[in-house]
Design a protein around this nucleic acid. Structure first.
Lengths: 236, 236
DNA sequence: CCAAAAGTGTTCTTTATACACCCATGT
DNA sequence: ACATGGGTGTATAAAGAACACTTTTGG
């Protein structure tokens, strides 16, 4: 990184904000949409809950920083992630000027059933409708993240990131109902989603349920890519 | 700003990326959608065109920085602006690590007909289909900005920000056609947009045109706010 | 046999699309 | 008179919304 020296030559005279990342991770519980929070060990806001995050290193882009922090703090990796928004209010951190690039992630909660927490830190999944008061401006970050999820889930097939690889149409519909906050008509839903031709029915069926076993489906990513390229628009 | 002292106490040991803003400003010409570029006076990329932008001060949020830089470099103010994306590739600036928060702005070009340029800098409006090679990663920033504009203009009434306060339905339709890159049916377009009840017909008509004078309309922002709050979705 | 979710079609309403001619104005 | 864009309605097709019963499985 020759930049280190050049930085001094060109710009050392200007103070710079600190740069951090914060991650809003959504997971799908049995009865609610959830987000992962970490309890802060130190001041400011010691004891309060906050989204996992941390400082951006000089040799990594912000998304890499977000994935690294998430892995360090929770052990979660390889999830769907996209940039959410950059929060830069001058007083958002009481210590000093900190600008934070927030990320928005979706995980298959079944893969992380046990409450995460690698350091001494406590991490816990909270239903989105029952969040404790959050540190810093994380309440605002959460609002933006939830709005993004609700807005996006209808027009891009990101909802599948919350489900296991193999899922039933019932699970899929419940996922949409939980996120959108309203009920969907079962027959119309199935007609629409199957009509897209993006769900591969598997030769397997659900097991161990005390009712008729449902067909398992898989989302056909390759087919979606192809259709998307030729102008197809996903919509629920 | 007590943060200045605290910053030294807590975090002076970590190097920080520089933080800048860049603004992609769209305006509507007679025959094309345009963006404002500034020709760089100094290295790196001396002589190349780039989006206006600059460093974020310690006492201003990024959007304020974007508006300030834009005013300083072009004299444009009070335009529609929203955050676009934060670009953080490690080598995006050859001198040192610079993270840039890009903004996306829409202006009523008629108000800025003369080529702007307040400093010694040259500023010019370029049709989006004929951009010169840009400095830094600004080609990528532009791609993201144009995609955002195309995607958003259909679902939010931001297109009006590109037109004068009073406009004809012909101007409105041409605006959508230029941005979306396809022709719209005149009768269907009028039926749809007038059907929303968001356009106030004015008792005035177009003047000095060598054809039948069109009715002038105004976008009813108050009514849109009300409808939006009760679940109405704008769509072209 | 009961509970619980899976699975399945049709009707009606709403919205989208395709399409052609006369009108007003300035040159 | 002609060139230019303004202004108007209808018919057809497609998509969305509403709606109820039978099937399968485990307990």
């Amino acid at each position: 990184m020759p930049g280190q020296y050049l930085a001094a030559m060109y710009t050392y005279q200007y103070p710079r904000p600190a740069l951090t990342v914060d991650c809003v991770i959504f997971g799908l519980g049995d009865e609610s949409l959830k987000v992962l929070l970490i309890q802060r060990a130190h001041d400011p806001f010691a004891g309060r809950w906050a989204f996992p995050g941390g400082f951006v290193d000089m040799d990594e882009p912000t998304e890499t920083a977000a994935r690294r922090e998430l892995w360090e703090e929770t052990g979660i990796e390889d999830m769907f992630m996209e940039q959410l928004y950059t929060f830069s209010a001058v007083d958002r951190d009481p210590r000093e000027r900190v600008v934070s690039v927030a990320y928005f992630a979706l995980v298959k909660l079944a893969n992380y059933k046990v409450t995460p927490g690698s350091d001494a830190q406590r991490a816990e999944w909270f239903p989105v409708s029952q969040l404790p008061p959050l540190a810093f401006d994380h309440d605002e970050i959460f609002k933006v993240a939830l709005a993004r999820l609700k807005g996006k889930v209808r027009y891009q097939p990101i909802g599948f990131e919350l489900l296991p690889e193999k899922f039933t149409l019932g699970q899929l519909q419940r996922m949409y109902e939980l996120i959108l906050g309203r009920e969907l008509d079962k027959r119309n839903f199935r007609k629409k989603i199957l009509g897209m031709g993006l769900l591969l029915p598997l030769p397997e069926r659900q097991k161990g349920v005390s009712h008729r076993a449902a067909t398992l489906y898989q989302f056909d990513r390759a087919k979606y890519k192809a259709l998307e390229a030729s102008g197809f628009m996903f919509e629920i």
